[in-house]
Measured scan of single mutants.
Amino acid sequence: TLFEALYDYEARTEDDLSFHKGEKFQILNSSEGDWWEARSLTTGETGYIPSIYLAPV
């Protein structure tokens, strides 16, 4: 399942991933609670993103 960003997000740590509204992600690991490891389909970068900023596509 792909997810789309509902809002912009600016990374706060080196493990976080910055993204823009409308960016799409492949989720790599969603077992860490509210922060999911994801790969951006726009940039190819991976990192942790807040799941509350996402909606399934």
Rank of each mutant, 00 (worst) to 15 (best):
T1D: 12
T1R: 11
T1A: 12
T1M: 14
T1Y: 12
T1C: 11
T1K: 12
T1W: 14
T1N: 12
L2K: 04
L2P: 04
L2W: 09
L2I: 15
L2S: 04
L2T: 08
L2Y: 11
L2D: 04
L2N: 05
F3C: 05
F3I: 01
F3Q: 03
F3A: 04
F3Y: 15
F3E: 00
E4R: 08
E4F: 15
E4K: 08
E4G: 04
E4S: 07
A5C: 02
A5F: 01
A5G: 03
A5M: 01
A5P: 00
L6R: 07
L6N: 04
L6Q: 07
L6I: 10
L6F: 04
L6A: 05
L6E: 03
Y7L: 09
Y7R: 11
Y7E: 09
D8W: 05
D8H: 07
D8K: 05
D8R: 05
D8C: 08
D8F: 05
D8L: 03
Y9P: 00
Y9N: 02
Y9M: 04
Y9C: 04
Y9K: 04
Y9V: 03
E10C: 12
E10T: 14
E10P: 05
A11R: 09
A11V: 02
A11M: 04
A11L: 02
A11S: 12
R12Q: 14
R12H: 10
R12K: 13
R12C: 13
R12L: 12
R12F: 08
T13E: 09
T13D: 11
T13I: 07
T13Q: 11
T13Y: 15
T13H: 15
T13P: 05
E14Y: 10
E14Q: 13
E14P: 13
E14K: 13
E14I: 11
E14T: 13
D15C: 15
D15K: 15
D15I: 14
D15N: 15
D15M: 15
D15W: 15
D15L: 14
D15P: 05
D15T: 14
D15S: 14
D16T: 15
D16I: 13
D16P: 02
D16S: 15
L17H: 03
L17I: 11
L17Q: 03
L17T: 03
L17N: 01
L17M: 15
S18F: 03
S18L: 02
S18A: 06
S18R: 04
F19R: 00
F19C: 06
F19M: 13
F19T: 04
F19G: 01
F19V: 06
F19A: 06
F19H: 01
F19N: 00
F19P: 00
F19E: 00
H20E: 09
H20P: 05
H20N: 10
H20S: 14
H20T: 14
H20Q: 11
K21H: 05
K21Q: 08
K21Y: 05
K21V: 09
K21T: 07
K21C: 07
K21L: 05
K21P: 03
G22S: 04
G22A: 04
G22N: 05
G22E: 02
G22C: 05
G22F: 06
G22T: 03
G22R: 03
E23D: 15
E23Q: 07
E23G: 02
E23S: 05
E23F: 04
E23L: 01
E23I: 01
K24G: 03
K24W: 14
K24Y: 12
K24H: 09
K24F: 11
F25I: 02
F25Y: 02
F25Q: 00
F25V: 02
F25P: 00
F25K: 00
Q26D: 07
Q26L: 14
Q26N: 07
Q26H: 10
Q26G: 02
Q26S: 08
Q26E: 14
I27Q: 01
I27K: 04
I27G: 01
I27N: 01
I27V: 10
I27E: 00
L28F: 07
L28R: 04
L28S: 04
L28D: 02
L28Q: 04
L28K: 05
L28I: 11
L28T: 06
N29S: 11
N29C: 08
N29D: 12
N29V: 07
N29H: 07
N29Y: 07
N29G: 09
S30N: 12
S30Y: 12
S30F: 15
S30I: 11
S30W: 14
S30T: 13
S30E: 08
S30M: 15
S30D: 12
S30Q: 12
S30V: 11
S31F: 09
S31K: 11
S31I: 10
E32D: 14
E32C: 13
E32I: 12
E32A: 13
E32G: 14
G33L: 11
G33Q: 13
G33N: 11
G33V: 12
G33P: 15
G33E: 11
G33H: 12
D34R: 07
D34G: 12
D34H: 09
D34Q: 11
W35C: 09
W35A: 06
W35N: 07
W35L: 10
W35V: 09
W35D: 04
W35R: 14
W35E: 04
W35H: 07
W35F: 11
W36L: 06
W36P: 00
W36T: 02
W36H: 01
W36V: 07
W36Y: 06
E37N: 08
E37H: 14
E37T: 11
A38C: 10
A38F: 03
A38M: 07
A38Q: 00
A38S: 04
R39K: 12
R39C: 07
R39I: 11
R39L: 10
R39P: 00
S40E: 02
S40N: 11
S40G: 02
S40A: 06
S40C: 07
S40H: 06
S40T: 03
L41R: 03
L41N: 04
L41V: 08
L41E: 06
L41Q: 07
L41P: 02
T42P: 01
T42D: 10
T42W: 13
T42L: 14
T43G: 03
T43V: 01
T43K: 03
T43C: 03
T43Q: 02
G44I: 01
G44E: 05
G44T: 03
G44W: 07
G44K: 05
G44D: 06
G44F: 07
E45W: 09
E45D: 09
E45S: 09
E45G: 08
E45R: 15
E45K: 15
E45L: 15
E45Y: 10
T46F: 07
T46A: 07
T46K: 10
T46W: 08
T46Q: 10
T46D: 03
T46S: 09
T46H: 08
T46L: 07
T46G: 03
G47S: 03
G47I: 04
G47L: 05
G47D: 01
G47Q: 04
G47Y: 06
Y48D: 02
Y48W: 15
Y48S: 06
Y48C: 09
I49Q: 00
I49E: 00
I49M: 03
I49D: 00
I49T: 02
I49Y: 02
I49L: 08
P50M: 14
P50K: 13
P50S: 09
P50E: 07
P50Q: 13
P50H: 14
P50N: 14
P50Y: 14
P50G: 06
S51R: 14
S51N: 07
S51Q: 08
S51V: 10
I52M: 13
I52R: 14
I52C: 14
I52Q: 13
Y53L: 12
Y53C: 08
Y53S: 07
Y53N: 04
Y53R: 03
Y53T: 04
Y53H: 05
Y53Q: 03
Y53M: 11
L54R: 00
L54T: 03
L54Q: 01
L54M: 10
L54K: 01
L54G: 01
A55V: 13
A55L: 08
A55M: 12
A55I: 14
A55D: 04
A55C: 09
P56W: 06
P56N: 05
P56A: 10
P56Y: 07
V57E: 06
V57D: 06
V57W: 10
V57C: 08
V57N: 05
V57S: 08
V57I: 11
